[in-house]
């Protein structure tokens, strides 16, 4: 019994220590953005890798999400004779929820796991220690640059996902449901208020932070050689996906509470 209690206590202490380390890493990485050196070239390089490199998957995600949402929405609206207003449903659900969440999940799979495996490999091959030995702050060079790139590019990718999803919805609405182009876009934009813009940009900002920092934390805390690299990559992907879904719920709850 005592052994079980000790084990539970050790596990909880381990989790608490990990949360503390993670929070400390987040603060240090964020603070790094406000002091020299700036590593502009590296930041642009990561923006290109995270942003331009992810366009293809977010376009695919957006177009199919928009199309399937229109098809399903039309079925639900048909009994009420409201099929022509399907664009309202598509735009509201895509901009507020599906666009940010699905884009973030795809980016977590592509970018988050990539960051984790890259940093984990650097960790197990002593390259991070070598950076410190060469007088470079590895958090600033490796993490702050990726964080800035994520915070800029994830909202941009989300806007692209939203736009492409509404376009996908339009293709189905126009060619399959024979909804007029003007009617579709008028109601699509009518469903969106100014606060949706805030919604649509605030959420991806938080998701971008989660994807990057979870990946970086998993990467630089890697131990145990190549097995550890694989473990960190999986861990980053799973943890960031869960955190995206959980934080999305709480943000939505908070926005509703504030009357947004």
């Amino acid at each position: 019994m005592d052994l079980a209690v000790t084990r539970i206590e050790d596990t909880l202490k381990g989790y608490a220590a990990a949360v503390q380390d993670f929070a400390q890493l987040c603060v240090t990485a964020a603070a790094g953005a406000f002091r020299r050196p700036w590593y502009v070239q590296e930041t642009i390089y990561h923006m290109n890798r995270i942003g331009v490199g992810s366009i293809f998957i977010v376009v695919l995600t957006g177009i199919f999400t928009g199309m399937v949402l229109t098809l399903q929405g039309a079925i639900q609206l048909e009994p009420y004779g409201a099929v022509p207003y399907v664009s309202k449903l598509v735009s509201a659900s895509v901009v507020r929820e599906l666009g940010p969440v699905l884009a973030a999940l795809m980016i977590a799979g592509r970018v988050g796991s990539g960051i984790a495996s890259e940093l984990a490999t650097m960790q197990v091959t002593e390259q991070i220690d070598a950076l410190r030995a060469e007088g470079t702050d590895p958090i600033k060079k490796l993490i702050t640059t990726r964080l800035i790139a994520s915070l800029v590019m994830v909202p941009v990718l989300t806007v692209i996902t939203d736009g492409i999803a509404m376009m996908g919805g339009y293709l189905i609405a126009h060619f399959s449901l024979s909804i007029d182009t003007f009617f579709y876009w008028t109601w699509a934009f009518a469903a969106l208020g100014p606060m949706d813009l805030v919604y649509g940009l605030l959420k991806p900002l938080v998701f971008g932070f989660i994807v990057c920092m979870v990946g970086c934390y998993a990467g630089i805390t890697t131990s145990g050689g190549t097995v550890g690299v694989g473990h960190s990559t999986t861990h980053a992907m799973v943890t960031s996906s869960i955190l995206i879904l959980v934080s999305d719920f709480f943000m939505t709850k908070l926005f509703i509470y504030w009357g947004w």
């Binding site: 091959t125 002593e126 390259q127 220690d129 070598a130 950076l131 410190r132 030995a133 060469e134 007088g135 702050d137």
Partner: peptide, 23 residues
């Protein structure tokens, strides 16, 4: 601290076991 160590590390260099070249 890490930052204070920077000036000390500037006088040193290390050759790591696996070379640790930036790949």
């Amino acid at each position: 601290t890490e930052r204070q160590m920077a000036s000390i590390r500037a006088q040193m260099a290390m050759v790591f076991q696996g070379a640790a070249l930036f790949d």
